[in-house]
């Protein structure tokens, strides 16, 4: 049995093909999905999406939160935004992280703190996606 993964964002389709396995960061922790998984619906946190391709290579993507539906060997991930690690520029991601950290330390009030926190988590995920240890 094969597993079909489809990652959609409002801009474009990020990924639509067969995979062997994925590891998904949900709101309640990471889950691994193999073929013939029980049908579930889950909220996806801002975090990494790891994909094992048919040639057993792992691929990492940064996922900016969203929703996933698994069932019938079909995974549909609806995300705000997603980037495959090879598309991310490491220097730019690192800079964005530093800016986000600086912004958080300067944030005043509840509102700015919410915004700065979200931005920081996004930036951190992108850096993690680039620097992930491949195994």
């Amino acid at each position: 049995m094969t597993l079909n993964l489809c990652v959609l964002t409002p801009n474009r389709i990020i990924w639509d093909s067969e995979v062997k396995e994925i590891i998904l960061s949900t709101n309640s922790g990471q889950i691994g999905v193999l073929p013939n998984h029980a049908p579930i619906a889950t909220a996806v946190d801002i975090g990494l999406l790891r994909i094992r391709l048919n040639n057993d290579q792992w691929l990492t993507a940064a996922l900016m939160g969203g929703f996933a539906r698994i069932g019938n060997n079909e995974i549909t991930i609806l995300g705000n935004d997603a980037e495959i690690s090879t598309d991310i520029n490491p220097q730019e991601a690192q800079q964005a992280l530093e800016i986000a950290e600086a912004n958080l330390s300067r944030a005043e009030g509840k509102r700015q703190a919410i915004e700065a926190n979200l931005a920081l988590r996004r930036a951190r995920t992108r850096v993690e996606a680039v620097n992930v240890i491949s195994y």
């Binding site: 709101n27 309640s28 889950i31 619906a41 889950t42 909220a43 996806v44 939160g65 929703f67 069932g71």
Partner: peptide
């Protein structure tokens, strides 16, 4: 179909 989290949380993500 099972909900991994609370329905409220899922709606919160959607």
């Amino acid at each position: 179909l099972q909900f991994e989290q609370d329905p409220v949380q899922i709606l919160d993500a959607l």
